[in-house]
Design a protein around this nucleic acid. Sequence first.
RNA 1: GCUCCCAUCGUCUAGUCAGGCCCAGGACGCCAGGUUUUCAUCCUGGUAACAGGGGUUCGAAUCCCCUUGGGAGUACCA
Length: 517
Amino acid sequence: MQTVAYLCKKMTFMNEVRVRFAPSPTGPLHIGGVRTALYNYLFARKHGGKMILRIEDTDQTRFVPGAEAYIMDSLAWCGIQFDEGIREGGVHAPYRQSERKEIYTLYCEQLIRSGHAYYAFDSTEELEHLRKSAEANKTTFIYNSQSRKNLHNSLTLSPETVEGYLASGKPYVVRFLVPEKFEVVMDDIIRGRVVVKSETLDDKVLFKSDGLPTYHLANIIDDHLMQISHVIRGEEWLPSLPLHVLLYQAFGWEAPLFAHLPLLLKPDGNGKLSKRDGDRLGFPVFPMRWEDPFSHEVSSGYRESGYYPDAFVNMLALLGWNPGTEQELFTMQELIDAFSLDRVGKAGSKFDPEKTKWFNHQYLIRKTNEEIASDFQHVLIEKGIQANSHLIIKVVGLVKERVHFVKELWDEAHFFFETPEKYDEQVIQKRWKPETPAQMQGLSTMLLNLPVFDAAAIDAAIKTWIETSGYGMGAIMNALRLLMVGTSKGPHLADIMALIGKEETILRIQKGLETLH
RNA sequence: GCUCCCAUCGUCUAGUCAGGCCCAGGACGCCAGGUUUUCAUCCUGGUAACAGGGGUUCGAAUCCCCUUGGGAGUACCA
């Protein structure tokens, strides 16, 4: 048995690292795709190489308007930049496969001439029928060295017949002639050596009857032409790696290095994470909101859900890769410095929406109060609240530890901007006693006469007042909190009172006394 | 079915390549306690895993084999 060994190229300083992210524009890019792009990007930057975006739109039937722009916008939001691509241009342009038809035709003809590929005239219906009957016999139909002998192709038909068919415009495809009795040996950076017998492979279609190549052909030609050094892609491509290696062989080209990334799995149960899981489980699976142009179905995105792009990227980076240290928070530059394909795991990772929230919280509490305040300002304006930024900054400083997202700030801080309209019934039961109104009135009077109304002064005054009156600290403070906030939560009371001011503080006590008696 | 890939706490993972430092470490979540005028934060502690079975070895989470389980692919889709 012959052996085709695909050997690793030695990485040298002469060989520039060039990687590509090659999505097909059939819809929004989900987080698995973003992670693949991210790993490519980190790898490229780490090695001072180039990152290329190539759009694989060879299936015209699956074209979705807006998907291409969505992909580019999403990655830009994540901070993943390309050196060459649709928007960036580059010496290998065009970067859209549909615009490279002529190139593929040329190379495909080369393969036919060299005897590595052949014409096949079997109709879709015929093949479908063969598959069905094979299935009925509990076997699988494969277009391979066995079956190709009994099918309509340039290997079985006379040259004249083939010529006639081609001349008459009979639809045909070009298939790869898988060599017999070969052992394809592949070295994957993540998986190590993988060996496959060529008999188990089928004669994949290289060129479709619509005049466009399939993924397999276009991808090999483009990776070669664009001088891609490393192909970093999802594990779903591993089964077609033998074909790709054989294709490089057939062309006489040196293959790039391959790294097949483990898949992202559903948080519950099993299986590859899919676009449906997000809506089903209540978390986004897309970086940005997407509205399907045909069904108008809307899928939520991380951006619109209030995630910071750096938190999102940080989370994604650690899903399948780890630095080998206990560091969890990384800037993009730190990720670049730490990244290595050696530390990418082999097993699929279940996506954890809870930890994703935790990452966002970590990023949020590290932002400056000013930065958060300017985002929060927009939320306040939507609520119809006018507040000066000085106040907002202070409020943010008091409550940011309590939230995962900017939009949650309102729930934790609304009482800084509006007088409580109602009081929590449970807290009333627990904290509002018959003697409370008189105590609150006394407190109100004392506060009214307080010359300085900052947190420290309020704190000291209330403490002294409680002590001299002989009341219980808990009883007074909790009742007072009920009047200030409407319930039993929130930051330090004196901080709240100082920020809303003396007038509002007194007003809230009086209002509470009227409402609760 | 067939081909290929994978297998450590509920989840993400360290440790596996170079076997002993691991009756397995960290993080998220969860639970409890502490701090606090409340809630949250924070602090402390706890919960919880080497899928199973055979080998090899003085010694295995680590190496080998089998079983089981999971995943991917199996299109004129990518």
